[in-house]
Amino acid sequence: MMSEWLAMGGHGLYIWGSYAVAALFMIVEVILVVRRRRSLMQRLGRMIRMKDSEVSG
């Protein structure tokens, strides 16, 4: 039954092709946004630590 459902009446390739690409793009975008935020926080954290050490040093 599963394989027949997957075939989607012969249009399986097109349907799964479009949904897979859409899902892929949305997931990749979320990952990019989160990674951008995390690396930004680290960079700013380091910058501030550097400034503090200069001030106190």
Binding site: M8, G9, G10, H11, G12, Y14, I15, S18, Y19, A22
Partner: peptide
């Protein structure tokens, strides 16, 4: 339901039209 004319193919509409 399955579309009378296009069978299952039309289900792409549910991602194409919103996008």
């Amino acid at each position: 339901p399955t579309d009378y004319k296009q069978g299952e193919g039309y289900r792409i509409m549910f991602i194409h039209v919103p996008a």
